[in-house]
Design a protein around this nucleic acid. Structure first.
Ligand code: ZN
Ligand code: ZN
Ligand code: ZN
Ligand code: ZN
Lengths: 145, 145
DNA sequence: CCACAAATGAGACTGAGTCTCGGAGTTATT
DNA sequence: AATAACTCCGAGACTCAGTCTCATTTGTGG
């Protein structure tokens, strides 16, 4: 996970540039996400922080996540109904998508240039400005097949 | 909307083949979805049915939607966090995806062969079985741009 | 028509996410 | 270091889509 510190620094830089003060809750959520390569739910974040002896208010967690999403630092992944997930987003635009296994619920990350290409082309074809795209596949993962 | 009756008939056929009895609530939900070309939320369905003088229990609506999704007759569209949407699904596999306008919230439907192709190829490349794919774009629609 | 299973609906319940507001933490200025 | 002006934080009440239960109704095969 050699890139985690880079992301962390980038986050600090963006937030500082935005004129925001620092704070404990925000710091804790950022550190946790920096450590985690794939999507966490808000509840998992709350539990993880409590488990490592850093209990953090739910309102703060959602506030921080919203802030990070607004600044393009974190992506909100709608992996299914009922619970949003969050994962760090690289400034380079580098990202991946997910397959959710219907059997075991496991998340499998993947990326695919052809898919990105097709989505990129759509913007023009539809005459709209596409800011963001969510792609979630459902099926059976390697292990469950 | 020349194809709406066809979908309706297909639904009836599939459910009859599955040995299910008919019932008022199910009939009402199917008729409403047959009339509607794009994604409705469960709450919108509940309200629409009440508005046309056919109030229907919430539990029944969710039951019917689950049943239709299980039989591949309706697609659950996760257009955002907090509220699932449902739209009819054609037996031919013909379908579309959506762009959600960040400004006005409007849904824009589109389809794209290159996108479908890319997703189809993924199945093999990843070594998984892909049953279903959700693609949601976010941005500004033609009207809001 | 009858018996029985399937379908329905009122309303209690769950749980992710939001909101509020008083108090704690941060920073610029002196 | 003290002050002041701000931002950030968190406990817990609240909202609301979605689930569950169970008594009642309805559809259907015989
Ligand atoms: Zn991921
Ligand atoms: Zn992508
Ligand atoms: Zn649609
Ligand atoms: Zn598709």
């Amino acid at each position: 996970m050699a890139d985690a510190p880079v992301w962390s620094d980038h986050v600090q830089a963006v937030l500082a540039r935005a004129g925001l003060k620092r704070g404990g809750a925000r710091q804790r959520v950022i550190e946790l996400l920096a450590r985690e390569p794939c999507a966490l739910s808000a509840v998992e974040i709350e539990d993880a922080l409590r488990a490592e002896g850093k209990p953090t208010g739910r309102a703060s967690i959602y506030r921080v996540l919203d802030l990070l999403v607004d600044h393009g630092l974190v992506e909100r992944v709608a992996v299914g109904p009922g619970q949003a997930r969050f994962e760090r987003m690289h400034p380079s635009g580098e990202h991946h998508h997910h397959l959710v296994c219907d059997q075991c619920g496991r998340l499998v990350a993947f990326d695919d240039p052809a898919l990105e290409q097709a989505i990129g082309d759509l913007s023009e074809r539809l005459g709209v400005r596409v800011e963001h795209h969510d792609v979630v596949l459902r099926g059976a993962c390697e292990r469950c097949e």
